[in-house]
């Protein structure tokens, strides 16, 4: 083959010769095969940079200033790391993180349990399964704020379903949202109700990925139900349970709409989550600099959790055939 090389140089050489380039112009240069990838993703990256990354960098800058977004005319005042040090030493902020942690732990645990049980119920095919699944899966597609409104109605002291049901049994009138513990439980229940179907979907995916021959082999070995579950089923759903746990932790960590609508952070500030607090600092007190700093602390947490999630995704993919 060597003897024909001088006659047909490789394509790069053609593109590099000045005559060729002038013939095809800028458009030719732009449409070259090696620029296909960058060209395709450019609009998306540009949009995200303008609408997401640029504002984020700006708020990173703002986090070192004392600034009020309502008074655009007043120039920001440089305060260095003061916003961050204030936040770290503020007991209020710490309290909001504790509230959020309580909701995350309570709700995600409940979701994993309920979701798992629902998945076991729906693992087999039965008549009308498709339609009944719709009823169970619907809650997670609803609007978070709409669910907040739902449960507000549900917990309503004079005619809400739950207080009246409780009254039926205890004879005592009951107000759900009046104490911190009950209000917290109310939020956890609403959130867990909404997102248990999510866990169910993931566990179902795990259950159906178990090869049938493993169960057949277990049958021959006369393995008990518990042993079958522990040694065959569980290894297949373990990775998906971990993914569900991480995904739901990220999402619940951000919980805003439900407490904002349902309890408005009350009674007092006992159910105010980090996101609700952030909203108040930013848009009720208009301490924009401080809010940006808190935003960055939260963002750091989310980035760590998202990396863990993607790492778990990779691990699962490499385990799968």
């Amino acid at each position: 083959m060597t003897h024909i090389q001088p006659l047909s140089p490789p394509p790069e050489t053609i593109a590099a010769t000045p005559m060729r380039r002038s013939a095809r112009g800028f458009l030719g240069w732009l449409m070259a095969p090696e620029r296909r990838g960058p060209l395709l993703v450019a609009p998306a990256i540009a949009t995200l940079v303008i609408v997401n990354v640029f504002p984020l960098l700006w708020s990173y800058g703002l986090s070192f200033f004392n600034y009020n977004a309502k008074r655009i005319a007043v120039p920001p005042r440089w305060v260095g790391l003061a916003n961050y040090t204030d936040l770290f030493s503020d007991a209020d902020v710490w309290g909001r993180f504790v509230n959020t942690a309580v909701i995350v732990i309570g709700s995600v645990t409940l979701q994993l349990i309920v979701g798992f049980l629902l998945a076991l119920l729906f693992a087999r095919e039965f008549p009308l399964r498709r339609y009944l699944l719709m009823l169970v899966l619907a809650p997670m597609m609803l609007s978070l704020s709409a669910v907040g409104v739902f449960f507000k109605l549900f917990y309503e002291p004079t005619f809400g379903f739950i207080p009246r049901l409780v009254q039926e049994f205890t004879g005592q009138p009951v107000v759900i949202l009046d104490t911190p513990v009950k209000a917290m439980a109310a939020i956890v229940c609403a959130d867990a109700w909404m997102w248990s179907p999510f866990v169910m979907l993931l566990v179902l995916a795990g259950l159906v990925s178990v090869p049938k021959y493993l169960y057949e082999a277990a049958e021959i070995d006369r393995a008990g139900a518990w042993r079958r579950f522990r040694t065959i089923t569980f290894p297949y759903i373990r990775s998906l349970l971990l993914l569900a746990l991480l995904f739901r932790t990220i999402e619940t960590f951000k919980i805003f709409d439900v407490p904002y609508v349902l309890t408005e952070g009350g009674p007092g500030t006992s159910t105010e989550t980090v996101s609700v607090y952030l909203f108040r600092v930013a848009f009720n007190y208009f301490q924009t600099g401080r809010a940006s700093a808190l935003g960055y602390i939260v963002l750091f947490g989310v980035i760590v959790l998202t990396s863990l999630y993607l790492y778990a995704i990779q691990t699962r993919r490499s385990e799968q055939p």
């Binding site: 087999r124 449960f151 159906v208 178990v210």
Partner: peptide
């Protein structure tokens, strides 16, 4: 949404009870 095997109308009854209970807040509204 795939499944791992067959079950009969008995399962349908159980699942129906659970689903309707689960859907109840929406139904209530």
């Amino acid at each position: 949404v795939r499944s791992i095997g067959q079950a009969g109308w008995g399962r349908t009854l159980g699942a129906a009870a659970v689903s309707i209970l689960y859907f109840f807040p929406v139904l209530f509204i």
